[in-house]
């Protein structure tokens, strides 16, 4: 029915502002999809790494051995992320401070906790990367699309004022092309919002796990520190 217009025609014949809006929305959509897939891959890797590391950690392996394994991995060029980096930060600080016998064991634990806290913050930062962008695409791109639509409709109605014979056919293509902008805005926004919500909950889950691990690990360090001190006291 009506005049058959192809989608491409609509886009090509749109006014400059509407085209600009469409361009922005297309870029936003592409960027948000890039980030969605990027985050998806990152979170999957982080989760797998976490399980792998936890299994290794609780397998009863010597902790300094585990630390050395991590060293080898780091020298291979694979970045150490997630739980393992928290472990490494805490363990390094602990072993560094435990070598100095004048430091109180409470202070040693405190120091390693601090180091782990820093590593944890960094992990959280890594996890949350790009999420702000997804959130803003999700919340603003419908508005950008709406702006394009309103602008296009404004334009086509102005054209209606100029023509003597006002028919639907004079405004319909303009409105149709303007509505494409809203469609694109929604197209960009919906996946971004969905992905943002999903990833935000994933960040929560992962950082909770990291937090728990920090507590568990500092418990182990606590035990070890006091064991070392009491042995030293007995020996000295």
């Amino acid at each position: 029915m009506e005049e058959q217009l192809s989608l491409l025609d609509l886009v090509w014949n749109a006014s400059f502002t509407v085209q600009l809006v469409m361009m922005i929305l297309l870029l936003a959509s592409m960027a948000s999809w890039y980030m969605i897939v990027n985050r998806y891959v990152y979170f999957r890797n982080a989760r797998d790494e976490m399980y792998r590391f936890e299994e290794r950690f609780w397998s009863g392996i010597d902790l300094s051995q585990l630390y050395r394994e991590g060293n080898e991995k780091a020298s291979d060029g694979t970045p150490i992320v997630g739980m393992e980096s928290i472990f490494r930060a805490g363990f390094k600080e602990f072993s560094r401070m435990a070598q100095q016998s004048e430091i109180d064991s409470e202070a040693v634990i405190e120091g390693s906790r601090r180091a782990m806290r820093v590593a944890y913050m960094r992990e959280e930062e890594r996890l949350e990367r790009h999420l702000a962008f997804l959130a803003s695409v999700g919340s603003t791109s419908p508005y950008i699309g709406l702006f394009g639509t309103v602008w296009g409709i404004m334009h086509s109605f102005r054209g209606l004022a100029n023509s003597t014979q006002a028919t639907l056919a004079t405004v319909a293509p303009g409105i149709s092309e303007a509505l494409v902008a809203t469609a694109m805005g929604l197209f960009a926004a919906i996946p971004a919002v969905l992905a943002y919500n999903r990833f935000a909950s994933k960040v929560d889950v992962l950082s909770n796990r990291y937090d728990t691990f920090m507590d568990e690990f500092s418990g182990i360090l606590h035990r070890q520190a006091f064991a070392v001190r009491s042995r030293d006291k007995k020996a000295g």
Binding site: Y42, P79, R122
Partner: peptide
């Protein structure tokens, strides 16, 4: 990474698949 805890964070590069 191993030099300082406060160094610039290393971010694993995931580019190809998302693109």
């Amino acid at each position: 990474m191993s030099t300082s805890v406060y160094a610039k964070p290393v971010i694993p590069r995931i580019i190809f698949r998302p693109a």
